[in-house]
Design a protein around this nucleic acid. Structure first.
Ligand code: SF4
Ligand code: SF4
Lengths: 144, 144
DNA sequence: TTTATTTCGGACAAAATTATCTTAATATAA
DNA sequence: TTATATTAAGATAATTTTGTCCGAAATAAA
């Protein structure tokens, strides 16, 4: 479904979101630790997210990553997936034809337009604030 | 969503299914041509499907691949995906935690159990006969 | 029985993804 | 201003996935 990069990206963003709620900026090391990911690889993904202006990064002592608190409820998981994996999951052909084309559909088209729509909507309506709240309450976890 | 191997596998199986309806056995070359896939790589995938007894293979002159006509309606796309990509799509954690565990769920758990259920059911109820019928009618295509 | 045809199986190769390392850039604080 | 902490960026490496090649095995027909 998602690439490993994307999974790390989602988890990292959620961790940053959780901390940003309480105005805490977090370091690369802390993030990688919290989500159980390879540190240098995580750095690359955070760079992508920073360029996509989903997160903010600051260099130097006490630097790290954060998300504008008032933006938390406006950033969706969909945006993260788009930034890292692109749109293939949302608009590519499930069976790998050059493009999705309802005029000349692949054999799974009618089945998958439904699933993709639901997937896309679910991700588009999942915002960082809501998801991070569950994390705060300990209802969900980022690593095991 | 699906690996490339799996996409090839699904398309190849559907092509074989279509031909098997009319008692035609098809060769590797014909399949690869019909679904626009690398021939030698396709051979590997057909071997997997043959071992999973989803398709039958016959060596020698006039050999090739076929599916028992009466089985067509009993074989699901789900089975193909399982044989090639395994169960990760159906029972793995969407965010890459070691396993899906509702007692200690990842932050996307509640959203994804719904999507995965629908995906799994859709694939489980898509049988080769039905899907191949649309192909026959020219309503859907395996390559463009 | 010999030859031709076709899949099978293993070895190999290329490409994409994931992961690491090293140096540079930047910001803070002493 | 200098030292330190931290992310950025580029080069490199490991792993996985995708793809190729070739000889072996099986089958059918001549
Ligand atoms: S048919 Fe289904 S899979 Fe093929 S392109 Fe359209 S949506 Fe994608
Ligand atoms: S929580 Fe969601 S993603 Fe994590 S394991 Fe359960 S289902 Fe998978």
């Amino acid at each position: 479904m998602f690439s490993k990069s994307c999974k790390y990206g989602i988890k990292a963003t959620l961790y940053i979101a959780q901390k940003s709620q309480h105005d805490e900026r977090v370091s690369l090391k802390e993030i990688a630790d919290a989500i159980n990911s390879p540190i240098a690889f995580t750095a690359k993904i955070l760079q992508i997210l920073a360029k996509a202006t989903i997160i903010n990064s600051t260099k130097g002592p006490n630097g790290g990553f954060e998300i504008d608190k008032v933006q938390l409820s406006k950033i969706s998981i969909h945006q993260i997936v788009e930034a890292i994996d692109g749109n293939r999951l949302f608009d590519g052909c499930v069976l790998g034809l050059n493009s999705c084309n309802a005029k000349e559909p692949c054999p799974m088209h009618s089945e998958f337009v439904i699933i993709r729509k639901q997937l896309s909507e679910t991700l588009a309506t999942s915002n960082l604030l809501d998801v991070a709240l569950d994390l705060n309450l300990g209802l969900t976890v980022l690593k095991r």
